[in-house]
Computed example of a mutant assay.
Amino acid sequence: MQNSMETNTHYIEKVYERLLEAITRGELKPGERVRQAVLAERLGVSRQPISHALQLLRHQGLLRDAGKQGVEVTPVNDEYIFHLYQARVSLEPLAASLSAERIKNRQAPEARVEAMRTALEIGHENLSSGAPVYLMVKADSRFHMSIYQLSGNSAVSAMMAGQWPHLMRSMLMVLDHPAVPTRAWEEHATIARHILNGSAAAAAEAATQHVERARLELIDRLKNTSRS
């Protein structure tokens, strides 16, 4: 008899998170078939939570139908990633500016401020220890999400939360270059410093430059990939 925990929402979310991580870190590669029976055996669960998790991932655009073979991992869509970066050029400066304003006006919850500091520290620790690229990407996501939450704008947090799995897949192609992680975390530190100083305009400008630089590096990497 299967464990009754497999049918509750919490357990389904755990399976979903494991599969999401496998996709974003490249364990499940673009175009790879995803079979419920294989996953159920690998994760030691019944097919029910697997089925629910696959539906969530398909709705998120990370999986797509593959006919009688079930589903497969959706390839990275270059055009969609470009569109996400266009959106980030507007949303990231807004979040940074709002965060700085909240700190300046003493409206920022200390827990949110500490979450940003912690995210920054984790990134620098990963950088110093030579952590795997996926951990660097995960830390990058955590840092930016901490700013969305610090901003107090729930719409920005909601819009971007669902997009970071797509961004993380694309960032794996960029952050494997030796110089990129160091520069990225220097820029993160600059953004955080301006936010903590309550300098809204400076925080927004630093965020704009950071996202624009990341966008150009991604375009360059995708072009090189298509040529090879």
Results as ranks from 00 to 15, higher is better:
A95D: 10
A95V: 05
A95K: 07
A96N: 12
A96L: 09
S97R: 10
S97G: 15
L98W: 12
S99A: 11
S99V: 08
A100W: 13
A100M: 12
E101L: 14
R102I: 02
R102T: 05
R102H: 07
R102P: 04
R102M: 09
I103H: 05
I103M: 02
I103R: 07
K104I: 06
R106I: 05
Q107P: 14
Q107E: 15
A108M: 08
P109F: 11
P109L: 08
E110C: 04
A111D: 06
R112A: 15
R112Q: 15
R112G: 09
V113M: 10
E114R: 12
A115S: 03
A115Q: 08
A115M: 09
A115R: 06
M116T: 04
R117S: 04
R117L: 01
R117F: 01
R117H: 04
T118N: 06
T118F: 03
A119E: 08
L120I: 00
E121F: 04
E121Q: 02
E121A: 01
E121V: 00
E121D: 03
I122V: 09
G123Y: 06
G123E: 03
H124M: 00
E125R: 06
E125I: 05
E125L: 05
E125S: 03
N126G: 07
L127C: 02
L127W: 00
S128M: 00
S128N: 04
S129Q: 06
S129F: 07
P132H: 02
P132I: 01
V133G: 02
Y134M: 00
L135W: 11
L135S: 13
M136I: 07
M136Y: 08
M136E: 06
V137Y: 01
V137I: 05
V137H: 02
K138I: 06
K138D: 15
A139S: 12
A139W: 06
S141Y: 14
R142C: 06
R142P: 03
R142Y: 08
R142V: 01
R142W: 08
R142T: 10
R142A: 10
F143P: 00
H144E: 03
S146C: 07
Y148A: 13
Y148I: 05
Y148C: 14
Y148D: 14
Q149G: 13
L150S: 10
L150D: 10
S151W: 15
G152Y: 10
G152T: 11
N153R: 14
N153W: 15
N153F: 14
N153M: 13
N153T: 14
S154K: 11
